Simulated assay, not measured.
Amino acid sequence: MATVAKLVDATIAAIGEVGYQRTTVQEICGRAGLSAGAMFRQFDTRLDLIVRTAEEVFARQLVGYTATMEHLGAQDNPIDVALRFLRGAQRSNLSHALREIYLAARSDAELRERLAPIAENYYREIVATLERIGLLADYPARVREPLFFLLLHVFSGEAVVRGVYQRPDLDESVLRLVEDMLAVYAAHGGAPEV
C-alpha cells in the first residue's frame, strides 16, 4: 500500500502542477521515485491510477469539508468560516488536480463513466453533511443544494482565473458581497416558487 500511496500522491502533485495531459506514467513514476514496472504491478493502466487518484482526492476533500463543517457551530460567523474554507479548498492543489481530471473526463467517455458514481457519492455526502449540521437552515430546502453548488462553482471559477489574472485586492470585497447576498436572500425567505 505504500507504493500505491506514493503513486497517488505523485499523481495528485503532477496533475495539479503540470496538468492532466502532461501527467504521463514517466512523470508520475519520476515524482514517486518508482519504476514504471512498479506502477504497473499496482495498476493495469494509467487510467486505473487516475481513477484511484480521483477517489483519493474526493476522500481527502470530504474529510476536510466534514471536519470544518462539524466545528462551525462554535464559530461567531459560521457562514464566513465556511465560505473562507470553501474558497481555500478550491485554491488547493487537490482541487486543481480534480478540475483537470474533470476537464479530461469531458472528452474521455471511459474516465467520465468511471468518475460519475464516485463524484455523485462525494457531492451527496457533502450536501448531507450541510443538512445535518444546519448551516443552510435559513434557506428553503429546495435551494440548499443548488446554493451549495453555486458557491462551490463561484470559488472554483475564481481559482481557475486566478492562475492568469490575480486580484487579491478583491478577495475580501467578493467574500463580503457573497455574504451580503446570502443574508438578503435568507432575510426574504428565498426566491418564490417558479
Rank of each mutant, 00 (worst) to 15 (best):
G30T: 11
I118K: 00
L83H: 08
V178G: 04
E179A: 01
A128Q: 11
P117L: 09
I12Q: 06
E125I: 03
S95R: 15
K6L: 07
A104R: 00
E100A: 09
A116P: 10
M39H: 11
T24P: 01
M39S: 09
M1N: 02
T45H: 12
Q75I: 05
G163I: 12
N77D: 15
I133Q: 14
R22H: 01
E125N: 09
R124L: 09
L86I: 11
P192M: 02
V164E: 10
Q61V: 02
V81M: 12
A191M: 10
V51H: 02
R91L: 02
L72V: 00
D44E: 13
I118E: 06
M39C: 12
T129S: 14
A32I: 02
I126M: 03
P140G: 01
R41I: 07
I133Y: 10
G88V: 02
D80P: 08
A191N: 07
L151Y: 03
L151N: 02
E100R: 11
A116V: 11
A141R: 11
I118W: 07
A13T: 13
L62W: 06
A54V: 03
Y123D: 05
R46K: 15
T68Q: 12
V154F: 14
R46Y: 02
V164N: 11
T24E: 08
A119F: 14
R46V: 05
E17V: 03
M39T: 09
I28W: 06
Y65M: 08
N77G: 10
R60A: 06
P146K: 07
A10W: 06
Q166V: 12
A10M: 02
Q26E: 14
R106S: 00
A36Q: 10
A104N: 06
I12G: 00
V25L: 05
H71N: 15
Y165V: 14
L135N: 03
N77Q: 15
R167Y: 13
F40I: 06
S107C: 00
A59E: 08
R87N: 06
L130D: 13
V160S: 06
A109N: 03
V154A: 12
I28M: 10
E172V: 09
V194H: 14
A59Q: 05
I28S: 08
M1Q: 01
G88Q: 07
R91W: 04
Q26R: 12
A105K: 05
A54Q: 06
E17P: 01
G157T: 10
R167L: 08
V18W: 02
